[in-house]
Design a protein around this nucleic acid. Structure first.
Length: 292
DNA sequence: AAGCGAACCTGGCTGC
DNA sequence: TGCAGCCAGGTTCGCT
């Protein structure tokens, strides 16, 4: 489900309740998600203060006061919700009163403030792990990750360097988290439309033989940044189950130019009809006329 | 080595 | 109404 903008939306939603909070106790309601929880997971979290919440690509990180980091991935269907004893407003947001646990509630963090943070994940493609802060960058989760697309490193020159010589299509290359980390199926389609580039075009063609940026590389880098920034601003995209932690929907799905719009007209005057194409059992949406 | 398809798992929607 | 089939925002494994 969640790509970078949805993950960032979740992080921002959790921050006012979790940053500075102390974890009173944790209910771990099954032994594994995509991978097993670390040994003594609940016990290691109990009593810890959360000093800050961060994000890297599609991972949320919670720094703990004992020097470890709680690493969280939402997979396809992971979500958080915040509940409070009688319903309460914290930092301008309203949180629902505590209700019964639901199917697929796998982890429940009881904070000493009285707030309760619930992780739900029907498909169990998500994960949680505990990693020493000093080993985070070399951990199995982070060591292979490529550029952070909202950081300062992503520009035309960087894209050209990454894609030079690649024969794989732009779609597959943008999905490859080892190159750029954070894009997924929706925002790849949207960024390619914004840059007027075909998903089937070979990635290497945006660079010169020497690895320098062609105009297409600049356009693509700009499109990626723009679409991600706009989506974060909109609270992400809610197609089926992405919600902000207070239950509000994101609304960037209303701004999709191509995703889910098969058969509808391209938004450009000189565009054609949006097509859907399946790559490795993944839909790609694009305009065959204006994307080259 | 790079590139591609399948598998992991559940729920929701469509069409017969 | 019931059920089979298809689809879903991610990652990883195994085979060319």
């Amino acid at each position: 489900m969640p790509e970078l903008p949805e993950v960032e939306t979740v992080r921002r939603g959790l921050a006012p309740v979790m940053e500075g909070a102390v974890i009173d106790h944790v209910e771990q309601r099954r032994g594994d998600l995509r991978s097993p929880f670390p040994k003594n997971f609940a016990g290691r979290l109990a009593g810890r203060r959360i000093t800050g919440l961060g994000r890297r690509a599609k991972y949320i990180t919670a720094d703990l006061d004992d020097g470890t980091v709680l690493v969280i991935h939402l997979g396809m269907s992971g979500s958080f919700r915040i509940e409070t004893a009688g319903g309460a407003k914290i930092a301008g947001r309203f949180y629902h009163p505590r209700s019964a646990l639901r199917a697929h509630d796998h982890v429940v963090l009881h904070l000493s403030s009285g707030a309760v943070v619930v992780f739900n994940d029907p498909r169990r493609f998500g994960l949680m792990d505990l990693v020493p802060r000093a080993e985070l960058g070399t951990s199995k989760h982070f060591k292979g990750l490529g550029l952070e697309p909202l950081g300062n490193e992503l520009d035309g020159a960087a894209l050209a360097r990454l894609f030079a010589g690649r024969k794989a299509p732009l779609k597959a290359s943008l999905m490859d988290q080892r190159l750029i980390a954070g894009l997924g199926n929706i925002y790849v389609s949207e960024a390619l439309w914004r840059a007027k580039l075909s998903p089937d075009r070979k990635a290497g063609t945006i660079a010169t033989p020497g690895g320098k940026a062609k105009p297409a590389a600049e356009a693509l880098a700009g499109a990626i940044r723009d679409v991600l920034q706009a989506a974060v601003k909109a609270g992400g995209s809610s197609l089926r189950d992405h919600r902000q932690v207070d239950g509000e929907l994101g609304y960037f799905q209303h701004e999709f130019a191509v995703y889910g719009r098969e058969g509808e007209p391209c938004l450009r005057e000189d565009g054609g009809t949006i097509r859907r194409k399946v790559h490795s059992s993944r839909s790609t949406f694009y305009c065959p006329v204006c994307q080259r």
